[in-house]
Write a protein that binds this DNA or RNA. Structure first.
Length: 374
DNA sequence: AATTCGGGGGT
DNA sequence: ACCCCAGAATT
């Protein structure tokens, strides 16, 4: 059935491909079904089809491991048991509860969409894909998750696990960051789902990707799909899926000014379209290199308009490094004794005892825990 | 299509 | 070091 073309690749005519893929589909469906029947993954969240819970859970799981999101999910449903509670919440409180989970636009979009559902839809989630997709923070994956897990409709949740599983099983060697390649995988997955319970199928393929068809050291030896898995039979499992290399990280130097007078501290909310939008920090001077003591002192008068007679700057050598997906943050801290209340930029003055009520990025939270709140 | 949004964890 | 993670929004 298989013969080679002049490039050495296997070539099939249309009819042969149809039959070949048909065999693979039957094999996949049969074996993924028997696998998931024996499989029992422990989940930390309650078993439910409530779209509010599904939406919240799937939003937290975007680019986030199950184990990392679980505790956050539980604290959210405790503080905000319904979409009405979330809609009525103070955004700073939501951010505080989200602190540490990352991708903070998710938390802001969560609030926006909760308010939208309460005000426009009387608290009822829309039950069609396009209406869900139109909501802030809901993309293809999350819309499909709500459609299948809450409403039992046949939409494939094509996450990283599913892309990896299908790229390997069908030996797809196109760059999976390209839309055409993802569309092809989605088409195959949709055919596979046919006549399955959509929620069972989605759960099965995502669990399978996470537990068996793992990125590194996948369990091909025990894999119930290995008989027809193209990547396995060609010995190229570790080469799939194909993805473009990541860009280099930008380096940024953050000089935080810990301004205190008596037991008051100055913090400000990040509002630019930049990392950590909506979180609080100490007043910041950013630079493209490490700044020396004298340079900091001159910037204080320039950028923060602090008078030298009103302050006393203490040298601080501690540095925290924070690695993000696209940036390296080198954070330094300068303690400043201020003899007057500092009021400038969008700063607020906060008592030491209430500092912990605000949401901070990790570099600030760690500094507070190590040096202030001890 | 490419880039940018965190932070934790595996290899 | 490097890459991934139950992705989405923006440019």
């Amino acid at each position: 059935m298989l013969h080679r073309n002049k490039y050495g690749k296997f070539l099939l005519n249309k009819k042969e491909i149809f039959i070949f893929v048909g065999f693979m589909k039957t094999h996949f469906r049969k074996n993924i079904d028997s696998w998931r029947r024996d499989y029992n993954r422990e989940y930390f969240w309650i078993s439910t089809q409530d779209p509010y819970y599904i939406w919240l859970r799937e939003t937290m799981l975007q680019q986030t491991r199950v184990n990392q999101a679980a505790a956050y999910f539980n604290s959210f449903i405790k503080s905000y048991p319904t979409v009405h509670d979330l809609a009525a919440a103070d955004e700073d409180d939501i951010m505080k509860l989200w602190q540490g989970l990352g991708y903070y636009s998710r938390a802001r979009n969560l609030h926006t969409t909760a308010k939208h559902i309460v005000e426009e839809f009387n608290g009822i989630f829309p039950q069609d894909y396009d209406s869900l997709l139109a909501l802030k923070g809901i993309g293809d994956y999350t819309a499909s998750a709500i459609m299948s897990f809450s409403f039992g409709k046949p939409y494939v949740t094509m996450d990283g696990n599913v892309i990896r599983l299908f790229a390997r099983y069908f030996g797809i060697n196109g760059d999976v960051s390209r839309k055409a390649v993802k569309d092809e995988i989605l088409r195959l997955a949709n055919e596979m789902m046919h006549s399955f319970d959509p929620s069972v199928f989605n759960q099965a393929i995502m669990d399978f990707g996470a537990e068996i068809c793992k990125w590194r050291s996948p369990e091909c030896g025990n894999c119930p799909l290995n008989e027809k898995c193209i990547a396995f039979n060609k010995g190229i499992v570790d080469q799939l899926p194909v993805k473009k290399k990541k860009a280099l990280k930008r380096k940024r130097y953050f000089n935080f000014l810990v301004i205190r007078s008596n037991d008051k501290f100055v913090i400000e909310k990040r509002s630019d379209n930049d990392i950590w939008k909506g979180l609080f920090q100490f007043p910041l001077i950013e630079s493209n290199k490490v700044l020396a003591y004298e340079e900091i002192k001159s910037k204080l008068t320039e950028e923060l308009k602090l008078k030298e007679t009103d302050i006393k700057v203490n040298e601080e050598h501690q540095e925290y490094k924070q690695v993000l997906s696209h940036q390296m943050i080198y954070a330094r801290y300068w303690t400043i004794e201020s003899y007057k209340d500092y009021k400038s930029r969008n700063c607020i003055s906060v008592d030491k005892l209430t500092l912990s009520l605000y949401a901070y990025p990790k570099v600030i939270d760690c500094y507070l825990k190590d040096n202030i709140l001890i």
